[in-house]
């Protein structure tokens, strides 16, 4: 057995310093190596989430953020053969155990194509069921102009999960927010056949935006 190193002040400082330096160097090296796979994994996850919630598209989804009513929402615009297919919008609402974050796909004709849960911390076996098709599939091809995005208890058309009204409410609210964001987006991009005026709040904003565009046109 080698004699233990003396616990002198110099030894202790040197040793801790060396351990920290070596550990940091090792970490930086591993970080550099795994950085790309981590980003690739995150990217793949986003792309697969987008592919789930919007109809078939080609090319890369264009990512951007939009500010609606003082809050920023990330979204992805997808198109096929140059024609816009729709938007995949990320929204969240407070559930039972924290935020429920969704990716909501809305097609160019203002119909919800599909939704998927990006993250949630709801109770397993209760609220966590919002990720299961029994609940989530009801939002497929949901037309917000015809059916209200509120749970039945609150006078809407959403079938709540048994014993998890709060989660169901959060889910419906997140989808509703996505529709609001969509309206703001549709107002920004003058797409034919889409009226962004159904939602009053977003409607006024898009009107203002359009007015602004016209003014600059005049100025030129």
């Amino acid at each position: 057995m080698i004699m233990a190193v003396q616990s002198s002040f110099k030894n202790m400082t040197l040793c801790l310093f060396a351990v920290c330096i070596v550990s940091s160097a090792l970490l930086a090296a591993v970080y550099a190596v795994t950085k790309e796979p981590i980003e690739a994994a995150e990217h793949a996850k986003t792309v697969s989430a987008i592919a789930q919630v919007v109809p078939e598209f080609d090319g890369e989804p264009v990512s951007d953020t939009i500010e609606v009513a003082g809050k920023k929402y990330p979204y992805y615009a997808v198109s096929k053969g140059g024609q816009p297919v729709g938007y995949a919008i990320t929204t969240s609402a407070s559930g039972y155990g924290g935020a429920v974050t969704l990716m909501v796909g809305i097609t160019a004709d203002r119909v919800i194509y599909n939704t998927t849960v990006l993250s949630q911390a709801e109770t397993p076996g209760l609220g966590a069921k919002c990720t299961e098709p029994e609940f989530a599939d009801q939002f497929k091809n949901w037309n917000p102009a015809e059916k209200a995005l509120k749970v039945k208890k609150d006078g809407g058309d959403v079938d709540a999960i048994t014993a998890s009204t709060i989660t169901s409410r959060a889910y419906a609210l997140a989808v509703e927010t996505a529709v609001m964001v969509y309206d703001a987006l549709a107002g920004q991009v003058p797409a034919d056949g889409v009226t962004g005026a159904t939602n009053t709040e977003a409607g006024t904003e898009s009107d203002a935006a359009e007015a602004g565009v016209m003014e600059t046109d005049k100025g030129e």
Binding site: K71, S92, A93, S94, G98, A99, T101
Partner: peptide, 10 residues
């Protein structure tokens, strides 16, 4: 690391 929500926005 976590976002918290207390009634309002997370």
């Amino acid at each position: 690391t976590n976002e918290f929500s207390y009634g309002g926005e997370p």
